[in-house]
Write a protein that binds this DNA or RNA. Structure first.
Length: 598
RNA sequence: CGGGGUGUAGCUUAGCCUGGUAGAGCGCCUGGUUUGGGACCAGGAGGUCGUAGGUUCGAAUCCUAUCGCCCCGACCA
């Protein structure tokens, strides 16, 4: 039980000028956080309470056994935040991840200690847990294992945004599973997916699991947990059949499986297109070649070597999908890099056999499946100011490999059901990856099976952005007056609004009811400030306490107190004699709802 | 890193174009009247106008540089 007058909840009437979105404004107005600097926030007492509730529920759900997936609960440990840089240099993603890591210098190390190892602040912990497990586990008898922690992560985000949404320092639950084989890794993965679903249900958040790109993390498959919200950074592509994927990963059934390759429509023919360097210009008069009848040729550089990506003229590249090609690092090529290889400037590029100036320099020519819909089309001649027509996909293009590289569009058929694809914005609050043996191979995390054979452990890794989830809850659950906390994560479940804090019988009743509610399992805040009622009601709404008990001299004269739920307009007047029983019943009812959600 | 915006009291801000004593509301302190949805009256404290140069008799205001913050983009485990 806390008394407002002796606690610390600095609320603001006005929104801070640097907050744009509702949840960010409310975070600050309700006194949950204060900004230190861009992307760095102090959790104020009220905000910390929410974090602690989220963490506690997260722990419970992770540690729960998952009989359906034959997995025990995850095991909590605590790893250093400061990592020797050479650990990362040994790992598989140093090149890709170094940009986002804060690095320490030798400040304070003093003279003569220049050999002090260099450190990075941990953005995630694969590089720490894998060597640990290599050292500690060597028998199949000790597998599977799943370790987790709830701790601070550091990422040098290029652009921190929206308060806790994208911060430089944030609280994350990260877990790492180790299995003897792929089958087991999938069980661990599914067990974690189930735990995530239970966690989000229980904290009162609508979060949907969507198929996701594995990105720098690598691995074979992954799901993101998204909270639908306009302010989210990600696009979720879904259909009414239940299919859902991050746009970076989403596919469609645009290209029929049984599509026959188009027969050549005629001889290759070069024609002059002076000054035409865009799909749109070629689509316009006098050429009038529609975008769907053009091949678009993009040049990228993967691990230092250029490669080509061919798309339908009207399609856009989904850059994340290039990750499937296996390059550690890739980027768009510059005009200076392109000309010596292809023989022309961007705008006149193509992949027709024999037109590429230096084909040996290429790491490959990768084509999106959808170009087969073009069949015969127009593409650049690798000669400035010229294009080729009657280019036939199978006859004329030297394609190394077909793949899915285009960005899907809404309205295209769902790959599962054929229903039209739709899209909405989402906040990524959790991510699960089946990693495979990428890290185990690199760090030598192997175990011996019952046949005395050594094998790499098969890993999975899992994250929930606890502090981001906190803000996502607010984004999803607020109104004009403030936050509307779900019962399970509210900093206090009950606020006793004491309108006459100097009236002894009111104080006594408040304490009695607060004690009874606490005994029933609720956290109670008594607003005992000597403020006008309006201020107390406004503050109670702003900080979003789910259930308000109002005790005032006026009501007591009539022998009543009031109960009001934050998410309802109804005010229930309760005789003082029944107040305790009614309140306790409400607490039990809410607690039961929360538990049954689990 | 590119584009845009912004920096004045604890918070929200006016003043800047057109240079001439730095203003308001909220909050805070004192006293009084109030007291069921952010009260009212009276009095008070609080500002090197982000920082550093420059122009000028004189700079919050004009110029230059620099730093911070916010938004868009790029990027994002």
């Amino acid at each position: 039980m806390k008394r407002w007058s002796q606690f610390f909840i600095p609320t603001l009437k006005e929104s801070p000028s640097d907050a744009e979105i509702a949840s960010h404004k409310l975070l600050v107005r309700a006194g949950l956080v204060r900004k230190l600097s861009g992307g760095l926030y102090t959790f104020m007492p009220l905000g910390l309470r929410v974090m602690q509730k989220l963490s506690a529920i997260c722990r419970e759900e992770l540690e729960r056994t998952q009989p359906a997936h034959q997995r025990g609960g995850a095991i909590e440990l605590w790893m250093p935040h400061l990592h020797p840089a050479d650990l990362w240099e040994q790992g598989p993603r140093w090149a890709a991840a170094r940009e986002i890591m804060f690095r320490t210098d030798h400040a304070g190390a003093g003279k003569g200690r220049s050999r002090e190892p260099e450190f990075v602040l941990g953005p995630t912990h694969e590089e720490v847990i894998t060597p640990l497990v290599k050292q500690e586990i060597s028998s199949y008898r000790d597998l599977p294992k799943n370790f987790y922690q709830i701790a601070t992560k550091f990422r040098n985000e290029i652009r921190p945004r929206y308060g806790l949404m994208r911060a430089r320092e944030f609280v994350m639950m990260d877990a790492y599973s180790f299995d003897a084989n792929d089958d087991g890794a999938i069980k661990s993965y599914l067990a974690m997916k189930a735990a995530y679903e239970a966690f989000f249900r229980r904290i009162g958040v609508q979060a949907i699991a969507v198929e996701a790109d594995t990105g720098v993390m690598g691995g074979s498959f992954s799901h993101e947990f998204m909270v639908p919200a306009e302010v989210g950074d990600d696009d979720v592509i879904y259909s009414d059949s239940g299919y859902a994927a991050n746009r970076e990963k989403a596919t469609s059934a645009l290209v029929p499986k049984d599509l026959a390759d188009a027969a050549p429509a005629g001889e290759l023919e070069k024609f002059a297109t002076p000054g035409v360097v865009t799909i749109a210009a070629l689509a316009a008069a006098p050429y009038s070649v529609s975008g769907d009848a053009q091949f678009k040729t993009l040049v990228y550089v993967g691990d230092g070597k250029p490669f080509l990506v061919i798309l339908r003229g009207n399609d856009e590249l989904e850059e994340a999908k290039l990750g499937s090609l296996g390059f550690t690092l890739f980027r768009a090529a510059t005009a200076e890099e392109i000309e010596p290889v292809l023989g022309a400037k961007p705008g006149s590029l193509g992949a027709v056999k024999g037109t590429i100036k230096n084909p040996a320099a290429l790491a490959g020519i990768f084509a999106d499946h959808a170009i087969r819909l073009v069949g015969n089309g127009v593409t650049g001649a690798n000669e400035d100011g010229f294009h080729l027509r009657n280019v036939n996909v199978s006859r004329d293009l030297a394609i190394t490999k077909f793949g899915d590289f285009r960005r899907v569009r809404t309205g295209e058929p769902c790959p599962v059901s054929g229903l039209p694809l739709q899209s909405k914005r989402g906040i990524e609050v959790g991510h699960i990856f089946k990693l495979g043996t990428k890290y185990a191979d690199k760090f030598g995390a192997v175990y011996t099976d019952d046949q005395k054979q050594n094998h790499p452990m098969v890993m999975g890794c899992y994250g929930i952005g606890i502090s981001r989830t906190l803000q996502a809850i607010i984004e999803q659950s607020h109104d004009n007056d403030g936050i509307v906390w779900p019962w399970a994560v509210a900093p206090f479940q009950i606020i006793v609004t004491l309108l006459d804090p100097l009236l002894p019988e009111a104080v006594q009743l408040a304490e009695q009811l607060a004690a009874a509610a606490e005994a029933a399992g609720a956290d109670v805040l008594i607003d005992d400030r000597e403020e006008r009622p309006g201020i107390k009601f406004k503050d109670a709404d702003l900080i979003g306490i789910p259930l308000r008990v109002t005790i005032g001299g006026k009501g007591l004269k009539d022998g009543i107190i009031e109960l009001k739920a934050r998410n309802s307009k109804d005010v229930l007047k309760v005789p003082v004699a029944d107040a305790q029983a009614v309140l306790v019943a409400r607490v039990r009812e809410n607690a039961a709802k929360t538990l049954s959600a689990a």
